[in-house]
Simulated scan of single mutants.
Amino acid sequence: MPAAPIPRLSAAERWRLLLGEAAQTSLQTGASSSMQAMDRALAWLYGREGERKSEHGEAAETLERHGGSEASRLSVPEWINAIHELFPKETIERLERDAIERYGIDDVVTNIDVLERATPNAALLAAVLRTKHLMNPAVLQAARKLVAQVVQQLMEKLAKEVRSAFGGTRARGELAARGAASQFAARETLRRNLRHYDPQQRRLIVQRPLFYARTQRQLQRWQIILLVDQSASMTGSVIHSAITAACLWGLPGVKTHLVAFDTSLVDLSDEAHEPVETLMKVQLGGGTDIAKAVGYAAGLIEAPRRAIVVIVSDFYEGGNEYLLIDRVRGLTAQGSKVLGLAALDESANPDYDRALAARLVDAGAHVAAMTPGQLAGWLAEKMQ
């Protein structure tokens, strides 16, 4: 059955929805059933703005928008159904993201009816990882499908960046009769096929397309050990670390390890090529013992000068800072490379303990905030 058409609103009606019930008298808009339904759905979510508290207990700053009196009667499944019928896709994704990230309405992903209607996106994936321990088996099965859809989207994006970083460079002096579309040598193809130009039809017939050859990078066997902080604040980094490990898994000459840690640790290397399984096993929350994780990584290293240890964390160490610094210094002294990654999501917004990060740099580590694609490029550069 085709989806119902999205209601069309006038400019005044859109302002009325933005400002809420308090603007009704000033704007003097009508009260169509569609606008009432939209207002009710928006008020159910944003009408709770005044209920939020700051970290110190004071009421949070409220928006100008005020909710209608009927908003609280909507249940979560009813709200999801309503926004899917009333709003375009872009608005639905924003509403679902605000419900999870801004107001903490995690039951959006603990109800099977809601999960089946929800639009797969990174915010919903993060919420699933936070609440999967509360899900019954039927809901968990539906959540797994959602996780798989979002992971596939992220994999498709990152895999291209990884292939580009590790796939070699164009050899401009060498041409081949076959190649990928990205290797097409347009200028050389035109020049060498000019004799096939038909002046009557004013058309150039390309009988022999040419492509730039690529020189394959010859990699010695390297170890990449991803140590991922799985404390509650690192959800986005855990997601993208799992995706990155899966993309690195199949590269020739690379042995990938994936270790999640808080105050304890779990080695997920055997499942690193299956990011859905990896993410469903992660337990978010708890403290942070980076020194313990680095010590474990040191025990995995086979050839020190061909090993890269990547610490994905906010560097708020709950363990022994002096032990962490000493272990990082020991790794760099033996020729291993240590990268501290302060952010590993698509926007790479850094939020980390800069004082400890600076001490790690003094110990020989490199600390940066970068996207997964930038990380792949950095690794490829170090492994040449």
Rank of each mutant, 00 (worst) to 15 (best):
T169F: 06
E302M: 09
Q183E: 15
T119V: 12
K132S: 13
D39W: 01
E274N: 15
A333F: 04
E85D: 14
G104A: 00
Q334C: 10
W15D: 10
E78R: 08
G318L: 01
E58V: 03
P137Y: 13
L19P: 07
R203F: 02
D351V: 14
T29G: 04
S10Y: 04
L115E: 03
R208Y: 10
H56I: 08
S313Y: 00
G57C: 03
A365Y: 04
A376H: 07
K160L: 15
E346G: 04
L17E: 03
R52M: 06
S75H: 10
G47Q: 07
L226Q: 05
R192D: 10
S182V: 12
W378E: 15
I83C: 00
G67F: 03
L146M: 14
V294Q: 14
V206M: 05
N349A: 14
Q24A: 15
Q223F: 06
I290R: 11
L74V: 01
G167P: 07
G47F: 03
L219D: 11
A245K: 04
E51F: 01
V128W: 01
V76H: 01
G318E: 02
Q223K: 13
L146S: 09
R130H: 14
E188D: 10
K145S: 14
R94H: 06
L248I: 06
R195A: 13
G319H: 05
L265K: 08
K382Y: 03
E381I: 05
E51R: 11
L219H: 15
N193D: 02
A37D: 11
K281A: 09
L17Q: 12
V109L: 00
Q374D: 06
A3V: 01
L379G: 11
I92P: 04
F87L: 02
Q207D: 10
A333E: 14
L356R: 06
L18E: 08
T110P: 01
G335M: 01
Y197M: 03
G299H: 09
R214Y: 11
N193F: 00
T332C: 08
A143N: 09
R327L: 06
K337S: 10
A297D: 09
S10N: 14
A242N: 06
A298G: 14
E51Y: 00
M35D: 07
S10R: 07
D351E: 12
